[in-house]
Each structure stands twice: as structure tokens, then as C-alpha cells.
């Protein structure tokens, strides 16, 4: 018996030495935009050592207009990246073999906003009005919306400034709930001065940010992907539970990036994030891509002829819940 005990003890000591010496795996991650509370979970996971806890040494590449996550993935300049579900599907259609390993934002925060004084209360009221539109992935839902309600509007390409809308250059503005909506409130409009149209409420829910990797990365290092997702989700959880601290971390990265840092705005953004990441409790599970949402996005992209092929959900989505099935 004594020998057996000794052997077990020896093995334990050996394994602990091995674990201690096991180096952190170095990875890079690209969020699709500049540092802001939209990416609070990742920055918090990094700052609070959550990634390290999962044995990963993460470097977050500062996102922005000149950093395209898809290019970074294609060129293998990064291991992980975030992007909208619709963008990812389009990219896969164009031949970039990427997979979704976690769906973070469940609820679309894209919305139309009209001033109450414009008299636009229902979608039909938009007929013949000037509607501001962003390009690319942002215009998919608006186009589907116009089609769904048979609207003929004057589409005005809009920049990321809300001034065109504030000055009355457009009647309806396309906005993100966590960003432009709050900027409009901070230009002196009260919520009751505005009429809002969430695409989510009009049957056009497009899940937004998800975490993507190349299929080959996923196949080679499933455990790493799993660890990255787990750590990121834990980072988000920590951020929701410690909003003040999370906002502080975000502001630190914003100042580092020389971009306007406004704690009130970041706090608003984080609060909205909590809501859209949790989504609809009945349908959505934390970090899991809902198949209904996926099917809807595929259907609309096909209808608008934005994709040619249709991919199987199981090939595209490799979230944490899919490991269990194996």
C-alpha cells in the first residue's frame, strides 16, 4: 500500500510541476471597432486576468475603420475576431472558411429613429420621406424592412454623424441603440421626443457581434477556442456585475487610442450591451447562436441575393453547446 501512495504522490508532484511550467498560449483578437463598451467583456477579461486564468495570453488588436477583422482573419494576422452574423455569413459565402464559436449579441440593436414632430409613427409613415442609410451590412435590415412594408423612401447615405438628422437633413435616421440613440438624447432630445423602430420588433432580428475563427484554427485547437469563449463570456459577466470598474477599464483603452472618452456614454452602452447580450430569455442562451435567428438571416440574405449558397447550421456554428453533442 505504501508504495502505491508514494507513487500517487510522486505523480501529483510531477503533474503540478508540469502544469506550472506549461506556457500560456499566445493569441490575438480583433474587435470590429474602436475600444468602447461594445467590447467591454474582452477588455475586462484581459485586464482582470481571466484569459490568463484559462491559460491564454491574449493580445487585443485595437480595432477601427482601418482594421478589417475579416482581412485579419484571412491573412492569419489574428486568431479571433468579432463581426456581425450577417457579415460572417456573407464572408463564408465568398469563400472565407470561418466558423462562429460564440454568439455574443443576441438582439439586434439597429433601429430607425424619427423625431416625434415628423409625425412618423408607423412604418407606413416613412413613405416618401428621407431616410438615412449606412452602407454594407447595416443596410440589409433596412432594405428588408422597406420590402416588408412596401415602402418607397428617399434613401440618403449617412455618415456616422447624427448631425444630418439633428439639422433635419433626413426625417429618419439609422442608429445603433447603444450609440447614436444616446447621442441624440445627449443633443437635447428626450426619449418621448423620439419615435423608435427596432428591427428586432419588426421580425428582423439580426444577431450582431459574434466571435469567429477560421475553420482550420477551430479544427486544430478546439480546446483553445473553448477556453477563449469561456473566458470572454466570464469577462462579460464580470463587466455586467461591476459596471463602474468595467467603464473605467474601457475609458483607459479609449484614452490610449486617443478617442473621445465619455464615461456617461460608455455606461449607457454597457447597460444596453447587457440587455442585448442577454436577449430574449425565452429564446436566447448566453453565448449560444439561436438557429431560428440564423435561419432568418440566411433567408433574408438569400432573398436580397447577397449570398448564393446556403450553409448548414452545424457547419457554421461551433459554439460551446455543440461540444456536448459530440
Amino acid at each position: 500500500m505504501k508504495k502505491v501512495f508514494f507513487l500517487i504522490f510522486f505523480l501529483l508532484v510531477l503533474s503540478s510541476i508540469y502544469a506550472a511550467e506549461k506556457p500560456f498560449e499566445k493569441v490575438t483578437f480583433v474587435p470590429q471597432w474602436v475600444p468602447q463598451a461594445q467590447f467591454a467583456g474582452y477588455y475586462v477579461a484581459l485586464e482582470k486576468g481571466i484569459y490568463k486564468k484559462y491559460g491564454i495570453d491574449v493580445e487585443i488588436v485595437q480595432g477601427g475603420p482601418r482594421v478589417s477583422p475579416i482581412e485579419y482573419l484571412k491573412d492569419k494576422k489574428t486568431d479571433f475576431a468579432t463581426m456581425w452574423l450577417a457579415s460572417a455569413i456573407q464572408e463564408r459565402d465568398r469563400g472565407v472558411k470561418l466558423v462562429n464559436i460564440a454568439q455574443i449579441i443576441q438582439r439586434s440593436s439597429l433601429m430607425f429613429i424619427a423625431k416625434r414632430t415628423s409625425g412618423i409613427q408607423v412604418p407606413a409613415d416613412m413613405n416618401g420621406k428621407k431616410v438615412g442609410i449606412w452602407p454594407d451590412v447595416f443596410k440589409i435590415q433596412p432594405e428588408a424592412f422597406f420590402q416588408k412594408y412596401g415602402l418607397k423612401v428617399k434613401k440618403i447615405p449617412q455618415s456616422f454623424s447624427i448631425n444630418l438628422f439633428l439639422h433635419g437633413g433626413v426625417d429618419v435616421v439609422l442608429a445603433m441603440w447603444y450609440n447614436e440613440y444616446h447621442l441624440i438624447l445627449n443633443a437635447g432630445y428626450d426619449p418621448e421626443d423620439l419615435n423608435t423602430f427596432f428591427f428586432y420588433d419588426y421580425g428582423l432580428n439580426f444577431p450582431e457581434d459574434g466571435i469567429y475563427v477560421l475553420e482550420e484554427t477551430f479544427k486544430a485547437k478546439p480546446e483553445l477556442c473553448k477556453a477563449f469563449v469561456k473566458a470572454s463570456l466570464e469577462g462579460w459577466q464580470y463587466a455586467f456585475e461591476n459596471k463602474k470598474e468595467a467603464v473605467k477599464i474601457i475609458l483607459k483603452y479609449q484614452k490610449k487610442a486617443n478617442i473621445p472618452a465619455n464615461s456617461v456614454h460608455q455606461k449607457w452602452m454597457l447597460t444596453v450591451m447587457e440587455s442585448i447580450i442577454n436577449g430574449n430569455k425565452k429564446k436566447h442562451k448566453y453565448g449560444v447562436l439561436n438557429k431560428e435567428d440564423y435561419d432568418r438571416v440566411i433567408k433574408i440574405l438569400k432573398e436580397e441575393a447577397l449570398i448564393k449558397k446556403v450553409f448548414e447550421f452545424k457547419d457554421f456554428y461551433k459554439g460551446l453547446d455543440t461540444y456536448v453533442q459530440k
Binding site: K130, I156, N163, H167, G169, V170
Partner: peptide, 10 residues
Amino acid sequence: YMDWFQIPQE
């Protein structure tokens, strides 16, 4: 698409 161009245009 800049404010100074787009807003007076619209």
C-alpha cells in the same frame, strides 16, 4: 457624406 457638404445639400 460630411456634415458640411451633406447637410446644406439636403
